[in-house]
Design a binder for these strands. Structure first.
Ligand SMILES: [Zn+2]
Ligand SMILES: [Zn+2]
Ligand SMILES: [Zn+2]
Ligand SMILES: [Zn+2]
Lengths: 146, 146
DNA sequence: AATCAAGTTGAGAATGAGTCACGTTTCATG
DNA sequence: CATGAAACGTGACTCATTCTCAACTTGATT
């Protein structure tokens, strides 16, 4: 996948610029993330990785997720659980989330009107917007027939 | 304060309807919440209460916060920390939050256009909306002059 | 290719928010 | 004011995440 190579390059150059090391662990984790469904959590991913590479530790997975989030390859978000979720955020347009409380399904959406109003709200309040997160929690219609 | 009495009544009737007890602990905690700034967290509140009433336990504070959230006297929310925040939600209109990452200031806002679009997004995706949460993280202009 | 300083890792201990179990206390009703 | 269910306080526990630190890589330099 092209994006993967580009992400590796981005990681590599960030590390070089900051005198950090390009390790096989970091590469492996990035690779596995690209083969893994979005909106995953650290523990899930760690177990997945452990099944294929029995030498990567939980701490390294957590540390690498942090690193990749800082660089802008991942986005860390709260989807209403008591743990963080992550998804790729590399050359991808912004979106927010609609989450079914019944089955956990996550729908992504992006609404230009909502986005615009947010910028205006920041403006009005003398704030510079850094990021935002909109989560709508609901219930799929199919769960109605109880 | 009038709202406080009304909230006590709401609590009292909810408890009666469900064969639960109106305890002094529950009353005390509700009272302290009304004297406490909004968007507080459980631990903060617990310490505050402990300074005045040395017999109320942490577990009871947590249990009561849950109870009050279920009844609709409080709203439990995630303001971007690794702990929950709470605020009064009794006879108050819905709002969302604008949070300064520099100083932690929280601005409340409600935007009818955003709210309407959210309902439409749910509609379009065959979901029934239960609740939502929009957090905008930014930086107050006054921090710019670094 | 050998060296070496500094960054990184794995293992497991530590942390911190929140929950649970359980023996004791309190409330509401008769 | 006796009764029994509901709540309480304590402290142990859970679970995600972070920290510590000795051992191990990395990559720039000889
Ligand atoms: Zn958005
Ligand atoms: Zn997403
Ligand atoms: Zn809203
Ligand atoms: Zn608020």
């Amino acid at each position: 996948m092209l994006d993967f190579k580009a992400a590796v390059n981005k990681l590599r150059s960030y590390l070089k610029e900051n005198n950090l090391r390009f390790t096989t662990e970091r590469l492996t984790i990035l690779e596995e993330i690209f083969n893994y469904p979005s909106h995953f959590d650290a523990e899930q991913l760690f177990i997945h990785i452990r099944n294929k590479h029995d030498n990567i530790s939980r701490a390294t997975v957590y540390r690498t997720l942090d690193l990749l989030s800082q660089i802008g390859i991942l986005k860390k978000e709260n989807l209403g659980h008591n743990y963080a979720s992550y998804e790729l955020d590399f050359n991808l347009p912004h979106h927010d989330h609609l989450i079914c409380l019944e089955c956990g399904k996550v729908v992504e959406f992006a609404d230009p009107v909502i986005e615009k109003r947010q910028r205006e709200i920041c403006e009005k309040n003398g704030m510079e917007m850094i990021r935002h997160q909109l989560q709508i929690f609901g219930r799929c219609r199919e769960h109605d027939k109880k």
